[in-house]
């Protein structure tokens, strides 16, 4: 890898949150999600919108970032929440951003505790036909129960970017695209 020609820094001074008077500092919402979209698609109005989210305290974001970038390059509009999101933060991001797909990346083993709340919250807030994907370290034994809860697909280690892209293209509810 060459260090020349990098681009797109974000000044992190914007990412420091000072506590308001009396309120707990972490009650406030997260940083505004970073939004990028691929330049390949000519009809932006028909773009599939994908939220890639990192719930819980898990800091493993290599996979989430690689997927976010790959989906963007595949022509989707991608919103990445950044790390350490509570279920409420993810639910409101999904609703506010009016996404078609929510991809949850979890590698800490907390999936059974976090996923149901997020799916339920999004569905209750009108995201009935959202496509829910989970990626990360998910033991085989946990997959059937996640599927039952409404996760459409679980991508475990070794899943290719291509398979994720193909799955979304095939299964996203196109009627929500306008």
């Amino acid at each position: 890898m060459c260090s020349e020609g990098f681009s797109g820094y974000i000044e992190i001074r914007e990412c420091i949150e000072m506590p308001q008077k009396k309120t707990a500092p972490r009650k406030t919402s997260g940083t505004k999600p970073a939004k990028k979209s691929g330049a390949m698609v000519s009809a932006p109005a028909r773009k599939v919108r994908v939220l890639i989210a990192k719930p819980g305290l898990d800091g493993h974001d290599r996979g989430a970032k690689v997927i976010a970038r790959a989906l963007m390059e595949a022509g989707f509009e991608v919103i990445y929440t950044g790390l350490h999101q509570t279920p409420e933060m993810i639910i409101s991001a999904a609703i506010e951003e009016d996404v078609h797909v929510v991809g949850l990346s979890i590698l800490s083993g907390a999936h059974n505790a976090l996923v149901p709340e997020i799916i339920e919250g999004i569905r209750k807030s009108g995201g009935d036909d959202t496509l829910f994907l989970v990626g990360g370290i998910i033991p085989d034994d946990d997959i059937p129960s996640l599927r039952k809860l409404g996760v459409h697909m679980v991508f475990t280690p070794g899943a290719s970017i291509e398979s994720v892209v193909a799955y979304i293209r095939k299964n996203v509810k196109t009627r929500t695209l306008s």
Binding site: E17, P25, G30, T31, Y80
Partner: peptide, 9 residues
Amino acid sequence: GVYRDPGMY
């Protein structure tokens, strides 16, 4: 204060 992820990718 606390630090928040810039969420760059």
